[in-house]
Design a binder for these strands. Sequence first.
RNA 1: GCUCCGUUGGUCAAAUGGCUAAGACGCCACACUUUCUAUGUGGAAUUAAGGGUUCAAUUCCCUUACGGAGUACCA
Length: 504
Amino acid sequence: MTKNVRVRFAPSPTGPLHIGGVRTALFNYLFAKKHKGTFVLRIEDTDQTRYVEGAEKYIVDALNWCGMPFDEGPDKSEKHGPYRQSERKHLYKQYADELIASGNAYYAFDTAETLDFHRKDHEAKGKTFIYNWHNRLKLSNSLSLSAEEVKAKLDAGEDYVIRFKSPQDETLNLTDIIRGDIKIDTNILDDKVLFKSDGMPTYHLANIVDDHLMEITHVIRGEEWLPSLALHDQLYKALGWDAPEFAHLPLILKPTGKGKLSKRDGDKLGFPVFPLQWTDPKSNDISRGYKEDGYFPEAMINFLAFLGWNPGTEQEIFSLDELIDAFDLNRVNKSGARFDPDKTKWFNHHYMQEQSNNDLAELFKPIVDEKLNGIDVNYIALVIGLIKERATFVSDFWELSHFFFLAPNSYDEKASKKAFKEATKELMQELVSIINTIKDFSAENLQTKIKGWITDNEIGFGKVMMPLRLALVGALQGPDVFDIMYMIGEKESINRIEAAIATL
RNA sequence: GCUCCGUUGGUCAAAUGGCUAAGACGCCACACUUUCUAUGUGGAAUUAAGGGUUCAAUUCCCUUACGGAGUACCA
């Protein structure tokens, strides 16, 4: 690659960034970094009616949380700025005019109503209305009207759009990095609107003008754009520009059923569809986010990278740097991939184990503080060391560790039937007196002493260990009993056993 | 409807003409832990269907079926 690689992520600020958008951004980011190139963020806000307050900030925050900040974009290294299309409005018209001058585009005066009528009319007859070569001369535009008529309409300030004049009877040979060669018959293409009557360009025009001006070398975008490739390709040709290379990414599909992943699937199946929590500014509806649900960005990124791509090796755990190193657009799949919430959790569990106990303690402390006061963060870190292997989220910690902080206030019914037997009371009383003689209250020593006592007296482990655990924890669960005793200390251990004796 | 893209276990997927079709998630069993997890070991489960080309097809070609996207003065 001789040219400096420059890619862009170009979302439109119509709401929070969907997980599919994050994946598109990720692949752009990986490709850029792999080739020591530049990752550009461009905001495609040409449709003012769909603009949503706060969406742009959300996009930037989401990219940063994921650890893939853009190199160039709004308010950052603005070498090719501005990066909001609404602020680039003045740039587009000249190219539309140029296309008209070269005969590649034309003015059209048809109202939305007449077009709508034609579409409905065709539909009723089982046909599709396509505005192109076969009917453009029957419609109201600068190809069907005389030059004088056109000028009169323009001078009168009538609303108009500028449409691209799709060629007739040509075959386009397009190339996509992921899909290979694609042949398109131009006769089925319609004359797309390039410039709207509100003075703004459509996506198509703005997109290729900006990609050209921003010197984008590779366009990596979702598969939903594949049908537009023919138009974009022709636009580059008509303007005499070199087209960038294209790669259309497969879609992310819902976990079950048909169609692409949507917010509803997340709500229904209980997983987030957005990286960060989002509050809709109009309805105040809250959409949950990966961050707030307790996912680590590394886990989400790792999972997303494997949706539609794989390294071809058996390695599955990849840091962002390793992904950059291994990433290759040629290894991206062609077919859509179903989203798997379980696997995302598995990744999160993995990355949880890699976090230090101290870092996790900082995250867990606020939760502990809600329940009781004055717990030392170092104690919390020690607790986490004992329980984190069984946790997927920080939010699992309390459920797994409350007995390190609070004595049980009840005993699990089924467990007590199993553990609390006739002889239990006496055994527990004996156990307390044994514990009282133990000077070194370490987990190891407790284990040696207590197990020694059980073996020496041929009591049977189950008869002691089960009720002991129940007394300490309140249920038959949790880590090693001796670790628990060591952590809560001698006094608390005895208190809990005596509390259990009192109920027997 | 039309156009384009796709189709390997339940899911993510490797292998690209050639040994018993990798691996991961999930599921099941066993082991460990005299608890619950986690972990370890093992297991069940796949080339959409039909036709062709070939000594040989998951891999190449065709048809069908199915899935997806697009078909806006939305991106």
